[in-house]
Design a protein around this nucleic acid. Structure first.
Length: 207
DNA sequence: CGGAAGATCCACT
DNA sequence: GTGGATCTTCCGA
């Protein structure tokens, strides 16, 4: 099925902003217990490495936690946030840069029941409940630190061609949850597919 | 070695 | 809109 054709490595080895906008509409494919779970990527944020105060690579800092962030483009960087949620990043560019794209939200394509079943509900789920947020996205696909440093080009967690969004269908705005980052907090590095109902939260978008 | 903060989510008011 | 949960990671002393 052409929908799930893998992307070439060079797709991920461009600038972070290029990858961030081009990755919208692509499929995040997870093979889990013999089942295929698929999310269409609808919202991301770009993190610009050493020059970006909001990035874990700020000032070029390397630690045990963020080691995979400095790998070659196409590798996963997964970390635990707030002691309870995971965030999945796609490393971009060349090794040593520390550039990455945070996957913030996905639209369920296959395996919705399984993804929803991973959590319990006290009300009927709404569109953004499945994977509308970086933590929820990881819960839906059962992604944890075990994927940190693994390739996203192939294997049990990979990104495929999908249904790319046209440039005219994109919106941009400031990133979420990084008020501490000074000037960088205002940079329009959050990208989403215009009007998609699975994004993590409605915001005053520009562009 | 201790303190503080964090690329979040959920429930409640 | 607000606050609590929860705990790893990082940095300064």
């Amino acid at each position: 099925m052409g929908r799930y054709r893998n992307l070439p490595a060079k797709f991920f080895r461009r600038s972070t902003e290029e990858v961030a906008t081009d990755i919208l509409g692509r499929f995040l494919v997870r093979e889990l217990d013999g089942e295929r779970l698929v999310l269409r990527i609808v919202e991301v944020e770009a993190y610009l490495g050493a020059r970006d105060r909001a990035s874990h690579a700020w000032l070029g800092r390397r630690t045990e936690r963020n080691r995979s962030l400095f790998e070659e483009g196409g590798v996963a960087y997964v970390y635990l946030i707030y002691g309870m949620h995971y965030c999945l990043n796609v490393v971009t560019g060349r090794s040593g840069n520390g550039d990455a794209v945070l996957l913030r939200a996905g639209e369920p394509i296959e395996g919705v029941e399984t993804m929803l079943g991973r959590r319990c509900w006290r009300r009927s789920p709404r569109p953004g409940d499945v994977a509308g947020g970086p933590g929820k996205l990881c819960q839906a696909l059962k992604v944890d630190r075990g994927f940190d440093g693994s390739s996203l080009l192939r294997g049990d967690l990979r990104i495929t061609e999908g249904e790319p969004a046209g440039t005219e269908d994109l919106v941009a705005g400031p990133r979420i949850g990084i008020a501490y980052a000074g000037e960088a907090a205002g940079w329009p590095l959050r990208f989403a597919i215009r009007g998609n109902r699975h994004v993590s939260r409605p915001q005053p978008w520009s562009k």
